[in-house]
Write a protein that binds this DNA or RNA. Structure first.
Length: 271
DNA sequence: AGCTACTCCTGGTAGC
DNA sequence: TGCTACCAGGAGTAGC
């Protein structure tokens, strides 16, 4: 479940290998993965485009190409990107490959097939509604105070709303709320200013740690491009720790469903 | 405005 | 062993 830190890890690993490379073509055996435009046009427009930059926006990888084209990839639940020699056998879960100069290709492996690829002239077609980056200056205490108190949303689903903040997923939402000592079902307009400051700090703390640890690898779901594991899972305080002891107090970690998602918290020290 | 339910997918696993 | 049923979840959408 690549979230902001996992996507950032992909971007940092792939960037040096992709900058300046030319995409000679695309191979796809599952058209639904090419979300926009239709596969024929996608194939035609991406031919011979050069990668000028690779950045992350929320959970999206954003490849700026020449000729005013932008390639955008969302890994969703189980997506994985790697650069392989064309002679290496192709895993059955690879449905889209970008052929590069130099006998290599960027392979998009995606077991659950939720991931999507876009090719657009205007990135705002895909990214336009995203909220601020949680590790940017824009995401300040003042911004959060205004935007939490101005709504009456339940905190956990609100943190998962990409149009509110971009990049937080189920794991980091639970971990951030634990750090902030806030119950996931609190209403956004019920927080004090100091609780909001704690939430901002909690979000930034867990995301920064996630990047430092190069993401969280659970089961076989997330791996770095080279197939190795990140280490963030070793720092989880609540996610996946149902019925285990709280690391901060004598409480026990509970799991409930909020907004349709598994939600982990300590009901003793998260208030 | 904000919530729930449903949809898309597959691999892993619990239960029999 | 082998089968079935169910679960995980990001995000869009329909409906209340």
């Amino acid at each position: 479940m690549p979230e902001l830190p996992e996507v950032e890890t992909f971007v940092r690993a792939l960037r040096p290998a992709l900058l300046g490379r030319t995409i000679q073509g695309v191979r796809n055996d599952w058209p639904a993965q090419l979300a926009k435009p239709d596969p024929d046009e996608f194939e035609r427009r991406i031919q011979l485009r050069t990668v000028e930059s690779l950045e992350r926006r929320g959970k999206y990888l954003v490849f700026k190409l020449d000729e005013n084209e932008t390639l955008i990839i969302h890994l969703k639940m189980s997506g994985h990107l790697s650069i392989e020699n064309v002679s290496k056998s192709v895993d059955k879960h690879v449905h889209t490959s970008f052929l590069l100069n130099g006998k290599e290709e960027l392979r998009f492996r995606d077991i659950r097939k939720f991931g999507r690829v876009y090719l657009v002239n205007n990135p705002d077609e895909v990214l336009g509604d995203l909220g601020p980056e949680p590790l940017s200056d824009e995401f300040s205490d003042q911004w959060l105070i205004e935007n939490l108190l101005g709504r009456k949303r339940i905190l956990k689903p609100l943190l998962l709303d990409q149009n509110f903040i971009a990049g937080i997923g189920n794991i980091y939402a639970d971990e951030a709320l634990f750090q902030a000592k806030l119950k996931p079902d609190r209403r956004s307009n019920s927080l004090s200013n100091s609780e909001i400051q704690g939430l901002r700090q909690g979000i930034q703390k867990v995301l920064s740690l996630g990047i430092k640890e190069e993401g969280a690898s659970i089961d076989t779901i997330y791996r770095k491009p080279d197939g190795s594991m990140g280490f963030m899972q070793d720092s989880f305080a609540v996610y996946g720790r149902t019925d285990m002891g709280c690391l901060r107090c004598s409480g026990k970690i509970k799991k409930i469903i909020l907004g349709g998602r598994g939600t982990h918290f300590c009901d003793q020290c998260q208030l």
